[in-house]
Every structure is written in structure tokens, then in C-alpha cells.
Nucleic acid binder design. Structure first.
Length: 270
DNA sequence: CTGTTCACCTGGCAGC
DNA sequence: TGCTGCCAGGTGAACA
């Protein structure tokens, strides 16, 4: 469900409320949603959150010595509540000073939290594989251009590869390709430096706008307060199959690439 | 190594 | 109303 902007919104919100808060207890309702490969859970109780960071689509909830790495996958949510709440599909509860609780809710159970030592975070394989952050000023179009050399996959499929650029998912891949005027099914190895530049700029634009809007709640996404993101109103192509292109008014087309539904404008995207 | 498909789950919705 | 099939914002394993 969440891509970079949604995870970023949750990260910023949790940073306003979690630092300094003590973890008083953990209740795991679904075992696979809480991985503790080192058996560190007893050490977590009684420690305090210090900071929340995001890397790609991962959330990093730090305490003094430990870190909870979260991935929301398709339907995960982290809900912070300071009053008694009845929430469906809760997989993990992180209890704070009563009555505050941080709930990990996940209808489809693909997501989860992993407990690690801070010192081991740099060696955690899923994070090691991630490509550069698209919103970092240090990330240039070379990341896209270099990764595309020798690749015959569709450009959209390349964008979804987290090793190339971290944080891009199905919604924003389609949106960025539309903004850059590029065909999703174009072969990745036909990307030029100028086109790579346009595409990275488009990613930055759609991500930045979506964060301002609080993310995209197309169906399930909710922020840490349970509120919807408003960016769905600004989507140009995602979820708009058959509707008129916002630029040329011709009907948008839908195809499948790498198993993912892809919507684009055959007239505006070449 | 590259590229493609499928499995992992639950729920909502369109169509009959 | 109720059933069936399809689809969903992600990713990694299995396969050719």
C-alpha cells in the first residue's frame, strides 16, 4: 500500500510523538508480523524511542540500542493512539505509557516488524540492497541511467526495482512516467541521459507533492492518526484507465507490465 | 546473470 | 441476496 511518500508522512508524524516515550510492553497477535532473530525482545521493554527514520519504504524506529525495522507491504499501517481504540486486524501492539499504544495493523499480513541491534542495522540485507534515495540532492540521473544499461525490461519495471531507486511503487512509477512523457513499456536500455534526467525530476516532483498532500489513499492507506492522504485527487493516470488524459483529453490506456497494472496516455507518453 | 511468473493473504466489488 | 471471480499501493522465491 504505501510507497515512499506514505512512509515519509508516517515517519514525520511518529517523530512528533514517539521520541522519549517508553516501551512498556509488546503484544504480538500474529507471530510472523514480529521477527526477533536475535531474541532481543526482553531488552526492548523499558527502553525509550529516540528517533524515527525512513529508508526507501522501510521505517526505522530507533531506541537507544535497538531498532525496529518496519515494512508495511500492501496493507500495513502504524496507528498511534492515546485513547482506548478498537482497531481491526491488529498484528502487533507496542504499549507505551498508558493509555498510549502504537498499533501495527495489517489486513493482508504481508508486512511486519523486525527487531535488531542498532549496530547490526548496516548489515541487514534488505536495507543493503536498496538504491539511492530519490529526494536526496546527491542522487542524480546517473543512478537511473547507469542501472538501465544493458537492461531489456520495460522502463516501468526498472523503476519498481528497489535496487535502482528506493521507494518507487506502482502508483508513483506510473505518475512519474506520465509527468516525464515517457512510455512505461519502453525498453530500459533505450533511456538516454536527458530522459533519465526528466524521469528523476518527475519522481522528485510527484513524491514531493504527494508528501505535501499527506500521501495517496487510493483504498487502504491511512497515516499514523488513521487519516486519509489527499493526493488521490492529483493523480494523473493511476486508477484512471479509460478516463480522459488530463493533458490531451484522449482516453488513458491500461496494460500489464511485470504483472502490474500500468496506466498511461498513448498520446502524451512516447 | 536476466527476465518472468507465482505465492504469500484478506477483503471489496462487479457481474450474474 | 448470495455466489464467483477478479483485483489490490510489495517483494522474494522459483523457474526458464
Amino acid at each position: 500500500m504505501p510507497e515512499l511518500p506514505e512512509v515519509e508522512v508516517i515517519c514525520r508524524q511518529l517523530n512528533e510523538v514517539l521520541p522519549g516515550q517508553e516501551i512498556t510492553g509488546i503484544k504480538v497477535h500474529l507471530a510472523k508480523a514480529f521477527a526477533d532473530p536475535q531474541g532481543l525482545l526482553p531488552e526492548l521493554i523499558g527502553t525509550r524511542f529516540t528517533e524515527v527514520q525512513r529508508r526507501g519504504k522501510y521505517l526505522l524506529l530507533y531506541t537507544e540500542r535497538l531498532v525496529l525495522v518496519g515494512h508495511l507491504r500492501m496493507t500495513g499501517a502504524l496507528l498511534y493512539r492515546t485513547h482506548a481504540a478498537s482497531i481491526s486486524h491488529v498484528r502487533v501492539e507496542i504499549r507505551l505509557a498508558p493509555p498510549a499504544v502504537l498499533y501495527f495493523k495489517d489486513v493482508r499480513t504481508f508486512g511486519g516488524l523486525t527487531l535488531l541491534r542498532r549496530a547490526d542495522l548496516a548489515m541487514y540485507p534488505p536495507l543493503l540492497k536498496l538504491g539511492p534515495e530519490p529526494l536526496s540532492p546527491q542522487t542524480s540521473e546517473l543512478a537511473l541511467y547507469t542501472a538501465s544499461r544493458g537492461r531489456k525490461v520495460a522502463l516501468k519495471t526498472l523503476l519498481l526495482d528497489q535496487r535502482v531507486i528506493a521507494g518507487v511503487g506502482n502508483i508513483y512509477a506510473d505518475e512519474a512516467l506520465f509527468l516525464a512523457g515517457l512510455r512505461p513499456k519502453m525498453r530500459a536500455d533505450r533511456l538516454t541521459r536527458p530522459k533519465a534526467r526528466r524521469l528523476l525530476a518527475a519522481l522528485k516532483t510527484v513524491f514531493t507533492q504527494s508528501i505535501e498532500d499527506g500521501g495517496t489513499s487510493f483504498r487502504d492507506y491511512r497515516d499514523s492518526a488513521g487519516k486519509r492522504g489527499l493526493h488521490v485527487q492529483r493523480l494523473a493516470v493511476y486508477g484512471r484507465k479509460g478516463l480522459p488524459c488530463k493533458r490531451c483529453q484522449r482516453p488513458l490506456q491500461s496494460i500489464r507490465l511485470g504483472g502490474r497494472t500500468t496506466v498511461y496516455c498513448p498520446h502524451c507518453q512516447k
